[in-house]
Amino acid sequence: MARALVNVPKAARQGEVVEIRAMIAHPMETGYRVGPNGINIPRDIIRRFACTYNGEEVFSADLFPAVSANPFIAFTLVATTSGTIDFTWTDDAGKTQTASAEITVG
């Protein structure tokens, strides 16, 4: 199950700039750590984060191992129309996890 927390205001005025926050459970294993057995722990990170607003990509990020475990990203969007804001996190293996939230724009 995806363990993600996304924060989108339930309602906004048209044209209002709203703050979006997204956090997902992920170790963001850097590939530079050594395990107790003396062998390098293989890299495993979220490589890309994307946010779409009614299907159109409005924000994205490329992440590197210097982003903390359980990556947290906050940004802003202009509330245009009521609809769905979707979030996608893609890891090194190409596996994706998703979350979404509804916004009502009046």
Binding site: Y53, V58, V67, F75, T76
Partner: peptide, 12 residues
């Protein structure tokens, strides 16, 4: 569509 050019995150 971002409205503002402000981003926050947590880094190592």
């Amino acid at each position: 569509r971002s409205g503002r050019a402000t981003v926050s995150t947590r880094i190592r």
